[in-house]
Design a protein around this nucleic acid. Structure first.
Ligand SMILES: [Mn+2]
Ligand SMILES: [Mn+2]
Ligand SMILES: [Mn+2]
Ligand SMILES: [Mn+2]
Lengths: 229, 229
DNA sequence: GTATAAACTTTGACTAATCAAAGTCAAGTA
DNA sequence: TACTTGACTTTGATTAGTCAAAGTTTATAC
């Protein structure tokens, strides 16, 4: 059913869009352009065999370069499309929270579907309507129309030393329960946080959000929160 | 990729949703519950063979009853889902025009994609945000959450007699150029129209919209405009 | 150096959706 | 009653995307 028309100007399928977007996010998170097949398969919740076969198609289509048993690396064309999907995803998340008032713990799944259905034209109107926001409700930067992300670098909360005073940049994890916890503790983008203690061997960090009461987090949680100094 | 989960609670695919919605619209337009395979195939832009095979699956799934060489007839379950898709479609169209300011001649295609990606939760918020509208920009009634359409009956403009004063109910055709023409002539839902002449054999009707200057339309066009007295 | 195991690829099978083309049916015409 | 024709169905093939399970490679351990 998906708009077929002629051989000409074949739209990428939602599956293609998802693979490219997730590969982009993985490469942004790791800081390396090359992403292993194992990570691709995990991220997309498919078996390794499926990932391999799909990645071969993507390579065929010029979306990425595939280095067998090494990994994949987006081409310029692939990165451009992936950035565009990411832009759609994050603008939609912003709309769902800002305009419709949905909870930030449930918007990710919604945007995951809508990002493949929204046209360039509607996207532009939406961007305008929202006042050209620069980040989504989780604090993630929204790529520009040109497909660029630029913003101050951030570090994981777990890497902060006692005594530091930082500001929350973004929440990496999209898992619903974690997002609910984060909101409850006021761990929201923009909030100021003071690091009270950080014992490396205890694998825990104690902090104070704004003027709230102090509490502790393990590394599992606190590596999912990015901050700036 | 489309959310697969377990065998449990399998979501209908966009294709299934499209078939059911179009069959519903065809049956509403014709006033008969039974719709022929030929019309189904035409409406969905697929070959007759494709329509037959798809309709068999839908029948298998309990969405409709298939009477070979006669046609199909939605079951209660099928009608309920179809009404729900129609609701999504028309609410989305309303949103695209009212909130984002898109042109009414281009929203149909957009909504055709978005209707399959929007969740029940987002739909409810959208309905609330829009102030629970009862009709879409083309004048079509928006089914209630319960899946019901009720509204005064309407007739085609072509069937009106000279001297009648009617009000435009809705525009049946979704074709972009026709919609542009309709707007140009102020043939919009709610507008008052006076029938000046109607010569059956000339296959033309002459009318005046509001206080505008009179003009004529053939039956091809004027049967696509529904009015109330 | 060989053994082991994790990571990856290949193979074979399956489902949903589609088309082209061949086949069938049923109405109306002669 | 037989013929013709348009509407419909069947058949066989194709594509995208997926999994299970078998096979291969490579890094590391011993
Ligand atoms: Mn997605
Ligand atoms: Mn986000
Ligand atoms: Mn649709
Ligand atoms: Mn409409």
């Amino acid at each position: 059913m998906r708009r077929a028309r002629k051989q000409i100007n074949q739209m990428p399928t939602p599956t293609v869009e998802n693979y490219l977007k997730h590969i982009l996010v993985l490469s942004l998170e790791s800081g390396s352009t090359e992403v292993s097949m194992g990570r691709v398969a995990k991220e997309l919740l498919v078996t390794p065999g499926t990932a391999t076969s799909m990645v071969k198609n993507l390579s065929q289509g010029g979306w990425l370069n595939y280095y067998p048993r090494k990994g994949v690396c987006l081409t310029r064309k692939g990165k451009k499309l992936a950035m565009n999907i990411l832009r759609r995803h994050r603008l939609l998340e912003t709309f769902l929270v800002e305009t419709l008032g949905l909870d930030w713990s449930e918007i990710h799944a919604e945007a995951e579907e809508l990002e493949h259905a929204i046209s360039e034209k509607v996207l532009e109107k939406l961007d305008q309507f929202l006042g050209r926001p620069r980040q989504d409700p989780h604090g993630h930067p929204i790529p520009t129309k040109g497909g660029v992300i630029n913003r101050p670098s951030s570090q994981a909360l777990i890497n902060c030393k006692a005594g530091m005073k930082v500001r929350i940049d973004s929440i990496v994890d999209q898992e619903s329960n974690f997002l609910k916890f984060a909101r409850e503790k006021r761990l929201l983008p923009g909030q100021e946080v003071r690091i009270l203690q950080h014992e490396k061997e205890a694998d825990a960090i104690t902090l104070q959000v704004g003027k709230g009461s102090p509490f502790s987090m393990g590394s599992r949680s606190s590596e999912k929160i990015l901050v700036r100094v």
